[in-house]
Design a protein around this nucleic acid. Structure first.
Lengths: 122, 122
DNA sequence: TTAACATATGAACATACATTCATATGAAAG
DNA sequence: CTTTCATATGAATGTATGTTCATATGTTAA
C-alpha cells in the first residue's frame, strides 16, 4: 500500500467528506456480490445467452444455433450462469431447457439497455 | 464453429422460437456497448470508486485514502472510467476532483444494489 | 526557477478467464 | 444392451487486464 507521506498535505485528504462517503458506501461483501453479478453480464457471450432466455426457455442446441456458438462454449457459460443461480433448467427427454431464474435480472438488463439507447440519442 | 451435423435432430433447433427471440434481441453493437458498460462495473476497485463518487466529488488523494489503494492504481482506473465517460473531472490547484458524469449510472448501481439486498433476505 | 506536491502514464508482471478440443455422462430408441 | 443423440466437463491455450514500480507531467509556493 501507499506510504502516508506521499499522500497530499493537511488540507487534501478531506477526512470529513471521506467519513461521510464511508457511511453511505456499500460494504465489502456487497461490493463483491455486486461486482460478481456485473462480471456475469460483462462477457458478451453470457450476455447474449441471458438476453436470449429473457422471455422464453431454450435448449442448449437452440442457443448454439441462435448465437452461432460452439456447443462446448455454450455449456461452459451456462454452467457459470447456473452456479450463479442466474438461470434454471429442466430436462425434457434428451434436451435441457434453460430459462431465467430471477426476474430481477430482466429488470436490470432492460433498465441498462434503456440507458445505453438513451445515450445514443444524445 | 460447429458442424451442423452435430446439432440435434429435426425437431430440436426450435426455429420458430429462435426467430422470435432474434426479433426481440439487442443487436451486436448494443450487446457490445452493454457488456462494455458492465465490464466497467465488474471490477471491484472501479465499482468502489464509482460508489464513492456517486453523490459527491473527490480528489484522487481522497480516493486513495478512502479505499486504501495505491495512487497509481486509482489513477489507472480513473483513466478507464474517464475514457468511458463515466466520470468527469475538474482541476482546482494541484488537485483534480472526480465526480459522476452520468446520472443514469447512479440509477443502475442503486437498482442493482437493491436487488442483491433483496436476494439476501430470501 | 527550483522544490515540493498531486496526478498521470508506460512497461512489466501476474492472474483470470473465454474458447476449443477431446472426451465423458446421461437419456432414449432400436 | 448397444447405439445415437444432447449436454457436460477437464485440460490446454491464448488473451485481456488489474496492479505495481518507476518516472513523467503539470501546478503551486518559496
Amino acid at each position: 500500500m501507499q506510504d502516508k507521506e506521499f499522500i497530499c498535505g493537511e488540507k487534501c485528504p478531506h477526512y470529513q467528506k471521506i467519513d461521510e462517503v464511508k457511511k453511505m458506501e456499500p460494504n465489502i461483501e456487497e461490493i463483491e456480490t455486486l461486482s460478481n453479478m456485473f462480471k456475469l453480464f460483462a462477457d458478451h457471450t453470457r450476455l447474449r445467452i441471458i438476453c436470449s432466455v429473457l422471455n422464453t426457455e431454450l435448449c442448449v442446441c437452440d442457443l448454439c444455433e441462435l448465437l452461432d456458438l460452439n456447443q462446448s462454449t455454450v455449456s461452459h457459460q451456462l454452467q457459470i450462469l447456473r452456479n450463479a443461480k442466474l438461470v434454471k433448467f429442466r430436462r425434457e427427454g434428451k434436451q435441457i431447457y434453460y430459462s431465467l431464474q430471477d426476474e430481477h435480472i430482466e429488470q436490470i438488463i432492460s433498465t441498462s439497455l434503456a440507458h445505453i439507447l438513451e445515450e445514443e440519442e444524445q
